[in-house]
């Protein structure tokens, strides 16, 4: 039996939350594409410790995990779907763009909205055909301009970080101007001083890079 088979066996045979967590951590650290189906399965186990490890493992596997994840989206297991969205956000593959947009605006869990909003700012744009790129960028911009008004501070925080990242990756100076204006407004008017400060930091960065 190969080492990976043994690690997978360890996950399947774990009979306590603690053992499952340890077995998943080991499997995730092996960074083997063979582990992908098992790691995806773990996302549905309602074991947060194990799900965190599986999520990190899938993110580190990157693009190769995206197709099996998209094929396994579980509409009936909210927990599993929420973890998948975190994986998509972490990998940044543009194929997950529609999912991230929907999750960042309408998921009921603030931590899923937060992760999705963060993911929108770190998409790997070069993986999109040039013909689709501008349309997708505009979608992300519009979405972030919605999530920046979220009632939860942490979703707004993630949106600021993403707008800063988006500014760096797009070439449309009109949109860049809009981002700058938006960040400027937040740096003066958000009800949370912490967010005003994060927006100021973003603006300072933009000016440094100009």
């Amino acid at each position: 039996m190969s080492n990976i088979d043994e690690l997978i066996k360890g996950v399947n045979e774990a009979d306590s939350a603690q053992k499952l967590f340890l077995a998943v951590s080991k499997l995730a650290q092996a960074k083997s594409p063979q582990a992908i189906p098992t790691l995806i399965e773990v996302l549905g186990f309602n074991n947060p410790g194990a799900a965190v490890s599986a999520t990190e493992g899938l993110i580190s596997l990157g693009e190769s995990a995206v197709t099996p994840l998209l094929a396994n989206i579980d509409d009936y297991n909210y927990g599993a779907r929420a973890w998948m969205i975190r994986v998509f956000a972490g990998i940044g593959d543009p194929r997950a763009l529609p999912l991230l947009i929907k999750a960042s605006i309408s998921d009921f869990s603030l931590s899923v909205r937060r992760a999705a909003a963060k993911g929108l700012g770190s998409l790997q744009w070069h993986k999109l055909p040039l013909s689709e790129r501008e349309g997708a960028e505009k979608q992300v911009l519009d979405t972030l301009f919605t999530t920046i008004d979220d009632g939860e501070w942490v979703v707004r925080y993630a949106s600021i970080v993403s707008l800063e990242n988006l500014y760096k990756t797009i070439n449309n100076s009109e949109w860049q101007e809009e981002i700058e204006q938006k960040l400027h407004t937040i740096s003066k008017k958000d009800q949370e001083i912490a967010l005003q400060c994060r927006a100021s930091k973003a603006l300072e960065f933009l000016h440094k890079t100009e």
């Binding site: 947060p48 603030l110 931590s111 937060r114 501070w153 942490v154 925080y157 949370e192 001083i193 912490a194 400060c197 100021s200 930091k201 300072e204």
Partner: peptide, 28 residues
């Protein structure tokens, strides 16, 4: 621990530090 909780705790630090920066006339 969960990132959600860590973020809340970090926000507490940030607010404290911003307050300190304002008192000492620093920005960022």
């Amino acid at each position: 621990a969960e990132n959600s909780l860590k973020l809340i705790a970090m926000k507490g630090l940030l607010e404290h530090q911003i307050n300190f920066d304002q008192q000492t006339n620093q920005s960022l």
